[in-house]
Computed example of a mutant assay.
Amino acid sequence: MNNSQFDKIKNGKGFIAALDQSGGSTPKALADYGVPEDSYSTEEEMFDRVHQMRTRIITSPAFSADHILGVILFEQTMDRKIEGKYTADYLADEGIVPFLKVDKGLAEQENGVQLMKPIHDLEDTLRRANERNIFGTKMRSVIHEPNTSGIKDVVEQQFEIGKQIINSNLVPIIEPEVDIHSSNKEKSEEILRDELIKNLNNLSEDENVMLKLSIPTKANTYKELAEHPRVVRVVALSGGYTRDEANEKLKENEGLIASFSRALAADLNANQSDEEFNEALKSAIDTIYDASVNKN
Results as ranks from 00 to 15, higher is better:
Ala107Pro: 00
Glu123Ala: 07
Gln109Lys: 10
Ile134Tyr: 13
Lys218Ser: 05
Val155Asp: 00
Ala236Trp: 05
Asp38Asn: 15
Asn247Cys: 15
Gln76Tyr: 08
Asp267Lys: 13
Ile174Cys: 04
Lys138Ser: 14
Tyr241Gln: 10
Glu207Trp: 04
Lys251Ile: 05
Lys101Ala: 11
Gly112His: 07
Glu75Phe: 01
Ile72Pro: 02
Glu224Leu: 04
Gln21Arg: 12
Glu123Phe: 03
Glu44Gly: 07
Asp244Thr: 10
Leu106Met: 10
Glu248Phe: 02
Ala29His: 12
Phe74Asn: 08
Gln272Pro: 10
Leu170Glu: 14
Asp121Arg: 03
Gly14Trp: 14
Leu203Asp: 07
Val231Arg: 02
Asn2Gln: 11
Asp7Arg: 14
Glu205Lys: 11
Gly34Leu: 07
Tyr241Asp: 06
Ile285Thr: 14
Glu145Gln: 15
Ser4Pro: 02
Asp32Ile: 01
Glu207Met: 01
Asn202Met: 02
Glu37Asn: 15
Val102Asn: 05
Gly136His: 09
Asn269Cys: 03
Val142Asn: 07
His181Phe: 10
Thr221Arg: 03
Asp79Asn: 11
Lys223Cys: 04
Asp124Phe: 10
Ser283Thr: 06
Lys163Arg: 15
Met78Ser: 12
Leu73Gly: 00
Ala291Glu: 08
Leu192His: 10
Asp121Gln: 12
Ala226Asp: 02
Met116Ala: 06
Gly112Leu: 01
Asp274Gly: 00
Glu43Met: 09
Asn220Ser: 07
Phe99Val: 01
Asn111Val: 03
Glu123His: 11
Ile72Ala: 12
Lys251Gly: 05
Ala62His: 09
Phe99Trp: 08
Leu19Pro: 01
Ser188Arg: 00
Asp124Ile: 08
Arg56Asp: 07
Pro229Ile: 01
Phe47Ile: 01
Leu170Val: 10
Arg132Asp: 03
Tyr33Pro: 14
Arg243Gln: 12
Thr42His: 06
Asp267Trp: 06
Ser141Ile: 13
Asp38Gln: 11
Met139Asp: 01
Lys187Tyr: 09
Ser4Gln: 13
Ser261Met: 00
Glu110Tyr: 00
Lys152Trp: 04
Arg233Glu: 05
Asp103Arg: 04
Phe135Trp: 13
Thr26Arg: 13
Asn202Leu: 09
Arg193Asn: 14
Gly84Cys: 12
Asp179Ile: 04
Ile82Pro: 06
Tyr90His: 03
Thr125Trp: 02
Ser168Gly: 05
Ala226Leu: 01
Gly112Asn: 07
Phe99Leu: 14
Thr59Pro: 07
Glu254His: 05
Val50Ser: 09
Thr287Asn: 15
Gly84Gln: 12
Ile16Asp: 01
Asp7Gly: 03
Gly12Thr: 11
Ser273Pro: 06
Thr287Met: 14
Gly24Gln: 13
Glu44Arg: 03
Ala270Pro: 02
Lys223Leu: 12
Val71Phe: 13
Met53Val: 10
Ile96Trp: 10
Lys81Asn: 13
Glu195Val: 09
Val102Asp: 08
Pro36Ser: 11
Arg128Pro: 00
Val71Gly: 11
Ile197Asp: 00
Glu123Leu: 10
Ile119Gln: 05
Glu248Met: 09
Ser261Trp: 04
Gly70Thr: 13
Ala284Tyr: 07
Ala280Pro: 09
